[in-house]
Computed example of a mutant assay.
Amino acid sequence: MSEIFSPPAAQLPTDKELVLKVIPMPADTNGNGDIFGGWVMAQVDLAGSVLPARYMQGRMATVAVNEFIFKQPVRVGDILSFFSSVTRVGRTSITVQVEVYAERFADQGRYVKVTEARLTYVAIDSEGRPRPVPPMPKAGG
């Protein structure tokens, strides 16, 4: 059996919030047997929307995937942890950074950073037009 490349273990971020955990299943694989990148992107979009949803107080839409980097393959049975932080608040939009870490099925307790992305969400009204983001609450207040 050939040895599989194993990247160095990663520390989970302490400056971001854990917003989602999910385990990919066999139905989520591509032709190589790894998890399909589009499936990972959909999960990142869901995870990225968690923090903006707290502040937008209504409908919102993903308007940009500013950056998306697949660092390592995701495998069936990995426990994926999605961490997010708000990096920018605009008049009608919020940009977030999402980092995804895999806890390999056969190597519990060891994390590998598999994906990172930056996405922008815009607050929209009932007609789908941009609307102002409500003011962010002040820290400690």
Rank of each mutant, 00 (worst) to 15 (best):
M1H: 01
M1Q: 06
M1V: 14
S2M: 02
S2N: 02
S2I: 14
S6L: 15
S6P: 06
S6C: 14
P8F: 03
A9H: 08
A9S: 10
A10K: 10
L12Q: 00
K16F: 02
E17W: 06
L18R: 10
L18T: 02
V19N: 03
L20Y: 01
P24C: 11
M25R: 15
P26Q: 00
T29Y: 08
N30E: 09
N32K: 00
G33Q: 10
D34G: 11
I35C: 08
G37Q: 07
G37S: 03
G38S: 12
G38H: 10
V40D: 01
V40M: 07
M41E: 05
A42Q: 01
V44Q: 09
D45M: 05
D45A: 05
L46V: 10
A47T: 00
A47I: 01
A47L: 07
G48P: 03
V50H: 03
P52V: 01
A53D: 12
R54S: 04
R54M: 07
M56S: 03
G58A: 03
G58Y: 08
R59A: 11
M60P: 00
M60A: 01
M60W: 00
A61I: 15
V63S: 05
V63F: 03
N66V: 03
N66Y: 05
E67N: 14
I69Q: 14
K71S: 12
Q72R: 10
P73E: 02
P73Q: 06
V74T: 13
V76F: 10
G77C: 00
D78C: 01
I79D: 04
S81H: 08
S81M: 09
S81F: 02
F82N: 06
F83W: 12
F83P: 09
F83T: 13
S84T: 15
S84Y: 06
S84P: 06
V86H: 05
T87D: 01
T87P: 08
T87Y: 00
R88S: 03
R88A: 15
R88H: 13
V89N: 11
V89D: 07
T92Y: 06
S93H: 09
S93T: 03
S93N: 05
I94R: 09
I94N: 05
T95I: 07
V96R: 12
V96C: 10
E99V: 10
V100E: 04
V100A: 11
A102L: 00
A102Q: 09
R104K: 15
R104D: 01
F105S: 14
F105K: 14
A106Y: 05
Q108D: 01
Y111N: 04
V112G: 09
K113Q: 15
K113V: 13
K113H: 04
V114W: 08
E116C: 04
E116S: 15
A117G: 12
R118C: 11
R118Y: 03
Y121E: 05
Y121D: 01
A123G: 14
A123P: 02
I124W: 12
D125F: 11
S126N: 14
E127Y: 09
G128V: 13
G128K: 07
P130A: 03
P130Y: 01
P132N: 07
P132R: 07
P132Q: 02
V133K: 04
P134M: 04
P135V: 11
M136L: 14
M136A: 11
K138M: 14
A139Q: 00
A139N: 00
G140T: 11
G140S: 09
G141D: 13
G141N: 13
